[in-house]
Design a protein around this nucleic acid. Structure first.
Length: 432
RNA sequence: GCGGCUAUAGUUCAGCGGCAGAACGCCUGACUGUGGCUCAGGAUGUCGUGGGUUCGAUCCCCACUAGCCGCCCCA
């Protein structure tokens, strides 16, 4: 029989690495809560139309990377429905915002999520077909201040604080403005006009981009095309006064709180819904996938999905990539993540002591102690060997100890062995 | 989706057209209620899968699968 394996691009996360995941996630929850964000959990699959309309039919994500299937009708009266595993979470959050009429509260909705996303791409380092994102969205009616550049700056400052608190150093915040919903098409048209006469001289990749997504030409890494790219129109010249003022205000707010950034006029993002502010936090040592997180403003998304006007700004952070950078950083200093040691390994000496040992373990665990319970069939030597790997102390529960109520405890670090009355055991272990 | 590299023990990796190897880890004993250090012994395995060449393939060839790197794109 052939062995079943995790499918391509998916993987198992095992302890002790999962402790690192837990640390990152709990840090996110803690930091985001200080900014008054609340958690939202949306379904892992949605109507395919949500992504087609929200993310954009022409994007790579929608056109070739989605896991989509026809959910078959189970009754004559029922129609089959095209469903898709979510490739990102912003569309789902905005769908929920509309569906639950959160705009009617009149308040800005600040929501974060942590969960798996799915894209059918070729797996690589830092890129998986099931990957995890931590993201947040600040969305609401304009009257709630959702269009304010302060929101952009606040989200960026929150991200900087989060990365700092996690101990991630060496990141770079890169940002740009791609203009409002009306600026952007004008600019794209100008770009097409400028590219038309010169694109034949460019690399095949850029010729293709010039046709499908001219903005991407700006993002080209091809040095041969640099000269031509430098002559292309600049987005900054196509921003209307409002967009210019918005971007300036974002930068001013970042300056005021000392968050460092780089403006990159060529930063474009792949999703159709972005307007005005777009950004990335990048990090070296991630290989070709150097973007730790990306995001931006999406002032028109709600309306694209048939909802009310609800401007917003958000980001999605690649948890897999975050863990990767943490692991390489910590691997260099203190080695790979280690299992945390239990407070004590409890060794029953003989099978007859198994049941009493479980009772003692229960008592100690109720005091909050982390206890590894051995087995009465183990030879004492084996208990010591296992205990030494898993715990700080070993507790012996033999016939003598059971009869007298005085336990034998040995500390592995000091080698010191003591007799401790059962009533004092929990406190002694806690203090050690 | 395209190009390149790789796949051998639990792990990290040597190796060779002719009996499958090392280190670490694991198991047993020296030591019947005492770990680490030491010593002695032991088991590691469909050599990724399927086909081909050959007297003979873990080794050479082909295909597939998976991983890694780059491209595309993205978190």
């Amino acid at each position: 029989m052939t062995l079943l394996k995790a499918v391509r691009g998916t993987r198992d996360l095992l302890p002790p690495e999962t402790e690192l995941w837990d640390r990152v996630e709990s840090t996110a929850r803690r930091v985001f809560a200080r900014y008054n964000f609340g958690e939202i959990r949306t379904p892992v699959f949605e109507d395919t139309q949500l992504f087609a309309r929200g993310v954009g039919e022409e994007t790579d994500i929608v056109s070739k990377e989605m896991y989509t299937w026809e959910d078959r009708a189970r009754a004559q009266s029922e129609k089959s429905q095209s469903l898709t595993l979510r490739p990102e979470n912003t569309a789902g959050v905005v769908r929920a915002y509309i569906e639950h009429k959160l705009g009617e509260t009149g308040l800005l909705q600040k929501l974060y999520y942590i969960g798996p996303q799915f894209r059918r791409e070729r797996p690589q380092k830092g890129r998986y077909r099931q990957f995890w994102q931590i993201g947040a969205e600040a969305i609401g009616p304009p009257s709630a201040g959702s269009e304010s550049p302060l929101r952009d700056a606040e989200v960026l400052e929150m991200l900087a604080s989060f990365l700092d608190e996690l101990g991630i150093t060496g990141w770079t915040l890169v940002l740009n403005s791609v203009g409002s919903a009306s600026d952007r098409p004008k600019y794209v048209a100008a770009l097409r006009d400028a590219l038309a006469p010169v694109k034949d001289q460019m690399s095949p990749d850029n010729q293709r981009r010039a046709e499908t997504n001219p903005l991407r030409v700006l993002d080209s890494k091809d040095p041969a095309d640099e000269a031509i790219i430098a002559t292309l129109p600049k987005i900054a010249d196509y921003l209307d006064d409002e967009s210019k003022a918005h971007f300036a205000a974002v930068l001013a707010a970042l300056d005021a709180c000392g968050v460092k950034y780089e403006v990159n006029p060529r930063l474009v993002r792949g999703l159709d819904y972005y307007t005005r502010t777009t950004f990335e936090f990048t990090h070296g040592g991630l290989g070709a996938q150097n973007a730790l997180l990306g995001g931006g403003r999406y002032d028109g998304l709600s309306e694209m999905l048939g909802g009310p006007k609800a401007p917003g700004i958000g980001f999605a952070m690649g948890l897999d990539r975050l863990i990767l950078t943490l692991k390489t950083a910590e691997g260099a200093s203190s080695g790979a993540p280690q299992f945390a040691l239990a407070d004590a390994f409890l060794a029953p000496l003989g099978e007859a002591l198994n049941a009493p040992a479980l009772e003692l373990a229960r008592e100690l665990r109720r005091h909050g102690l982390r206890i590894e319970l051995g087995d009465g069939t183990f030879r004492l030597r084996k208990s010591f060997e296992i205990g030494n790997k898993l715990a700080h102390n070993i507790i012996l529960l033999g016939e003598d100890e059971q009869a007298s109520g005085i336990l034998t405890v040995k500390n592995f670090a000091t080698g010191e062995q003591t007799k401790i009355p059962r009533g004092e055991l929990a406190q002694t272990l806690k203090n050690s």
